[in-house]
């Protein structure tokens, strides 16, 4: 547990020392949101709101998580090697990415909602879905960015590898979030919420179990 927090703190400090990555991601979100604003001249329907929001958030999340192992393919891996166990490393990275993606998701909601309106009928449900998705995304994206970093310099690789793995979650959560926009019943949607949480849990477990094999060299 000590190692997990050490990794989170270290990650934050290293990322903060290269702050432009945070800001470039914000600008990325801002510009993609603005494109969807330009494309839709009139008011936007609920389904389009839902689709655009999740596509923008998904690509921002892929970009954000891609950085988590980008700089440590060789040298920093060696540094970590003596510092912590692989299990704490992956948990720390996933937790860090979870926090990162959670904040990123809130920013996307703010920017996207600011320009396109906030149509949520049930904001609590929408936020819950957003955080569950941040958890599931971070579990898959962290492991996949580890794979991509080890595989070498193919810039398209993180997106190719991670997006198909995210489909089950995306399909479930886009259905749920559309319902949270139009009117949400907790009883009716409980099974889908459980599926979404289980998907996040399974991804977390798989990343945790499989990461030690990636790490060895």
């Amino acid at each position: 547990m000590q190692g997990v927090f050490q990794i989170i703190k270290l990650n934050f400090r290293l990322e903060w020392s290269a702050r432009q990555s945070y800001f470039s991601l914000l600008i990325y979100i801002l510009s993609t949101v603005y494109i969807s604003n330009l494309v839709f001249e009139q008011t936007i329907g609920l389904e389009s709101w839902n689709a655009f929001f999740w596509v923008i958030f998904l690509f921002a999340a892929v970009q954000a998580a891609y950085r988590s192992f980008y700089f440590e393919a060789d040298r920093r891996f060696l540094l970590y090697f003596g510092l912590v166990a692989p299990e704490s490393l992956i948990l720390g990275k996933i937790l860090y990415n979870f926090l990162y993606l959670g904040v990123l998701g809130l920013f996307t909601v703010l920017i996207f909602g600011g320009l396109m309106g906030f149509p949520m009928a049930n904001p609590e449900a929408f936020l819950l879905i957003l955080f569950l998705s941040a958890l599931g995304f971070s579990a898959i994206l962290t492991l996949v960015s580890g794979i991509a970093a080890k595989a070498g310099a193919n810039p398209a690789l993180p997106a190719i590898l991670s997006i198909p793995l995210l489909y089950p979650q995306i399909i479930t959560l886009s259905k749920l979030s559309l319902r949270s926009l139009s009117g949400f019943s907790w009883e009716v949607n409980a099974p889908l919420l459980i599926v979404l949480s289980l998907l996040a849990l399974v991804s977390l477990l798989l990343s945790y179990l499989l990461f030690p094999y990636l790490w060895r060299d």
């Binding site: 898959i140 492991l143 996949v144 794979i147 080890k150 595989a151 590898l161 793995l165 798989l206 499989l210 094999y213 990636l214 060895r216």
Partner: peptide
């Protein structure tokens, strides 16, 4: 190793 990890996922 990489392909094995990905295949299981």
């Amino acid at each position: 190793r990489l392909a094995g990890v990905y295949n299981i996922f």
